[in-house]
Design a protein around this nucleic acid. Structure first.
Length: 262
DNA sequence: AGGACGCCCTGTTCGC
DNA sequence: TGCGAACAGGGCGTCC
């Protein structure tokens, strides 16, 4: 799930449910997901405080505590959030539970435990330490073009490299390249001016549209590749059978006809 | 620098 | 239909 549109959706969800409420207790059901902190450390830091505001950078979500630093969350491949009344059952695979005084709780759920939760003084420090690139929805065209120009590898790996541009993963890089009509094997620095411009435009359009759809595939346009990435399925634009390729250790789906420009 | 791996986990899908 | 193998929307470390 969690690429930029998903994490932005989690952010808005947290904003609309969990801000400004006194935190009573933090329960780490899977302490292994905590990085550079412990259940005790987290509890001490959070207890009696409130979530003040949120920030997102790429696939990371930051939540500020009133004058007590920030929590940073990453959702791995299967993470999500769920806000619920404390009379309801704790969701399966809950790794971390924030309990508010108002009788509600916020669960950080991650069946595969590939995510992480940590604490940082400032999001900027974290972004710097991790060497994250600019957020995919914040970067301007000029900077985008410069980065493409000096990237020697294929364009899909570049889009997915969080140290270059933050927020895009396997699914959305495929979608962006499909809609831009560019083959994922193209070397980033060999893209023409118009191709780079189109790629940039499609990157923004795809991400923004996905956010509007709350990152829910069922709400996304039928002609998106996203809904057809399954073995043997056909291109929603031209009908040709979709192909797969291994790029950066992940499976890329593409249309051999719409993205024929090797 | 960039690509190919293996690995971390565990539920789901694939293929015989 | 059933079962083990391969895969999955991420990221890190190692080797080349």
């Amino acid at each position: 799930m969690p690429e930029l549109p998903d994490v932005e959706t989690f952010k808005r969800y947290l904003d609309s449910t969990s801000l400004k409420q006194a935190i009573q207790r933090v329960h780490a059901l899977q302490p292994a997901i905590l990085k550079d902190t412990s259940a005790q450390g987290l509890g001490r830091k959070l207890k009696g405080h409130r979530f003040e505001r949120t920030r997102r950078h790429g696939k990371y979500l930051f939540v500020s505590l009133n004058k007590n630093g920030w929590i940073v969350m990453h959702f791995g491949m299967t993470g999500r959030l769920k806000y619920f009344k404390d009379s309801e059952n704790v969701p399966e695979y809950t790794n971390l539970l924030f309990e508010f005084k108002n009788g509600f709780r916020l669960a950080y759920i991650a069946p595969r435990k590939l995510g992480m939760v940590s604490m940082v003084e400032e999001p900027e420090h974290f972004i710097h330490d991790r060497r994250l690139g600019p957020d995919a929805l914040s970067i301007g065209y000029k900077h985008f073009r410069e980065l493409a120009g000096k990237r020697r590898g294929n364009v899909k790996s570049w889009l997915m490299d969080q140290k270059s541009i933050a927020g895009i993963g396997n699914i959305y890089s495929d979608e962006i390249l499909f809609q831009a009509g560019i083959n994922s094997g193209r070397m980033a620095s060999n893209l023409s001016g118009p191709e780079t411009e189109k790629l940039f435009g499609k990157m923004r359009e795809v991400l923004r549209t996905a956010i509007k759809a709350k990152a829910d595939p069922a709400r996304m346009p039928a002609r998106w590749l996203l809904l057809h990435r399954k073995k043997g399925k056909n291109c929603p634009r031209c009908g040709v059978t979709l192909m797969t390729a291994s790029v950066s250790g992940r499976t890329a789906y593409y249309c051999p006809k719409c993205q024929a420009n090797h």
